[in-house]
């Protein structure tokens, strides 16, 4: 994949978030320099997906701060902020009443205010980049899970984000389809995108991530370069987790 990215740094500082009395994030810290990839691993319910939603303010943090290119996101308009941060979901969340092309042109036209031709050209170029230029007229429901996720990635990338968030992007895919999507994400990391990837794919975390953060009970228990984390984990909780998933 050849794409040009204008990546920004992302700093999560002491973010806390609770649903009622249930504290899901208890002071999360994560620093991702521009153009780097951070993988967030951890058991279910550890707060990984909530962390991503706190970063782009789909969920409002109760405390702490998130800085995009050094500026606090809490001071910016949430809708404008999300236009700078792309997000890819576990269940793709493509709009089924639109064609593949329209899924990408809709935000380009309505949010970026591009003209119909300009939006179409940009969307087709993005589809070509993810290898689905021939699926522009198809409905998302007629595509395989892997293809749908690639369209979702194309839709996010078309907005020219400075950071990409991936929320278990391959968890809902059949094993045979995972490789294609992971390959696309690896290409994106290679192209210099700043990425935060919540994943259960330890192979991907090991090979592609610049840093890996292990979350448990709403905090980052341990983080570091993949080699250090996977081969010389300090925390007993991480060692236990790795012994169960590797």
């Amino acid at each position: 994949m050849q794409t040009t990215v204008e990546a920004a740094s992302l700093d999560v500082e002491g973010v806390e978030l609770a649903f009622g009395s249930n504290k899901v994030l208890r002071g999360v810290d994560l620093a991702v320099p521009a153009g780097r990839t951070a993988c967030v691993i951890g058991p279910s319910g550890s707060g990984k997906s909530t962390l991503l939603r706190a970063i782009n303010r789909l969920l409002e943090p109760d405390a702490g701060d998130v800085r995009l290119a050094g500026e606090s996101v809490l001071r910016s308009n949430p809708d404008e902020l999300r236009r700078r941060i792309g997000m890819v979901f576990q269940h793709f969340n493509l709009f089924p009443h639109k064609t593949v092309l329209e899924n990408i042109t809709l935000p380009l036209r309505k949010i970026k205010k591009l003209g119909p031709d300009e939006a179409r050209t940009a969307a087709l170029a993005q589809l070509e980049l993810v290898g689905l230029g021939n699926k522009a007229a198809a409905r998302p429901g007629t595509l395989s899970g892997g293809q749908q996720q690639r369209v979702a990635i194309a839709r996010a990338l078309a907005m020219k984000p400075e950071v990409m968030l991936f929320d278990e992007a391959t968890s809902a895919l059949d094993p045979e389809l995972v490789k294609g999507v992971l390959g696309l994400m690896a290409d994106l990391a290679q192209a210099g995108m700043t990425m935060v990837v919540v994943t259960h794919e330890m192979g991907f975390a090991r090979e592609v991530a610049d840093q890996v953060a292990f979350m448990d009970h709403g905090v980052v228990v341990e983080s570091g370069v993949p080699e250090q984390l996977f081969t010389a984990a300090e925390s007993p909780r991480l060692r236990l987790f790795l012994s169960q998933v590797l």
């Binding site: 782009n56 789909l58 809708d79 404008e80 999300r82 236009r83 941060i85 792309g86 997000m87 979901f89 269940h91 969340n93 493509l94 709009f95 935000p107 309505k110 949010i111 979702a152 839709r155 996010a156 907005m159």
Partner: peptide, 15 residues
């Protein structure tokens, strides 16, 4: 309609 649809729209920057 699945909640993820509105979430995806909001994540793209739609109000």
């Amino acid at each position: 309609v699945e909640k993820g649809q509105l979430e995806a729209a909001r994540a793209l920057g739609f109000t």
